[in-house]
């Protein structure tokens, strides 16, 4: 009770200082929020490209319908596979005429359809990795009536390299921004601790326990972290609306990310104040 009261009264006693601490936390978390927004949208863009990753199994012209049915059923049973579509020679021709109108004359004029029939194998979301694609391609290539298996090795490789770079930079930059946020919270709280050094001194003098001395600062850190988190959330939302309205369409980060950001703000507030007060208590 004393701890909460003291933490609240610290806010009242020095609104500028605590407001500044919260604003600094907010600023640091805002940078994290912006980065999160960019990372999330980049992730969405990569996912939409990944969704187009599929394995195309070209079949020989002399394949029997029963063999096609068997391959369809067996390939669909592979855990990595979401769906298998059969594309007949005629379907392939129609699609080519639609997709490549500049060659429509060529396709239309030929007496013999040069395009092969095929099976288009769509992968499950978790399996659209290089390994997943290669696994399915190898399984499909085992059938004797398969002419060729294609999945665009080169651009699949590039896509996954890009994904990896994205993930690593998200991890490194995210960690760096969080470290900056923690440093800022720690500094702000050290100022708050310094402002109350007389009280801390008297508490130690008369025999208050370290836990008792620490608690109001932990609450204060949590409140500064939470306030900063809310500020960062609002600022990130405003930026998102601005970008959406004036620049280009972007997606808002998932609610769980927002909740995690707020929780991280509180956790960093508590952690930073805990470290700051611990260091101070060791010094006095």
């Amino acid at each position: 009770m004393y701890s909460i009261r003291e933490a609240l009264s610290a806010f009242k006693r020095a609104p500028l200082l605590t407001g500044l601490s919260a604003a600094m936390v907010g600023l640091a978390l805002y940078v994290v929020g912006l980065f999160g927004l960019a990372a999330f949208n980049l992730g969405l863009a990569l996912t939409s490209i990944e969704e187009r990753v599929e394995v195309v199994v070209y079949l020989r012209d002399d394949v029997r319908q029963s063999e096609i049915d068997l391959a369809l059923a067996e390939l669909a049973d592979i855990p990595d596979v979401a769906r298998v579509r059969y594309v007949s020679k005629r379907d392939a021709l129609e699609r080519a005429q639609q997709d490549l109108p500049e060659f429509s004359e060529l396709f239309g004029g030929a007496d013999v359809n040069p395009l092969p029939q095929s099976l288009e194998v769509e992968l499950r979301p978790g399996s659209r990795t290089r390994e997943g694609v290669e696994r399915v391609a190898a399984d499909a290539g085992k059938y004797p009536f398969v002419e060729d298996v294609r999945y665009g090795q080169e651009w699949v490789d590039k896509l996954f390299t890009l994904r990896r770079i994205g993930a690593v930079s998200a991890l490194v930059l995210g960690a760096a921004f969080f470290a900056v946020a923690a440093l800022i919270i720690g500094t702000a709280l050290r100022i708050a601790i310094f402002a109350r050094r007389d009280e801390i001194y008297v508490m130690r003098l008369v025999g208050a326990t370290n836990g008792f001395i620490r608690r109001p600062f932990l609450f204060e850190g949590a409140m500064a972290g939470m306030l900063g988190g809310i500020m960062a959330w609002l600022a990130t939302w405003a930026t998102y609306r601005g970008v959406y309205a004036f620049l280009f369409a972007v997606a808002w980060i998932p609610g769980v990310w927002v909740a995690l950001g707020l929780a991280a703000g509180i956790a960093f507030g508590v952690l930073a104040s805990g470290l700051a007060i611990r260091r101070y208590l060791r010094e006095v």
């Binding site: 130690r204 003098l205 008369v206 025999g207 326990t209 370290n210």
Partner: peptide, 13 residues
């Protein structure tokens, strides 16, 4: 160190 408060409550300063 964590128990020094016990002494402080027995000794006024």
């Amino acid at each position: 160190d964590r128990e020094i408060w016990k002494v402080r409550r027995r000794v006024g300063c």
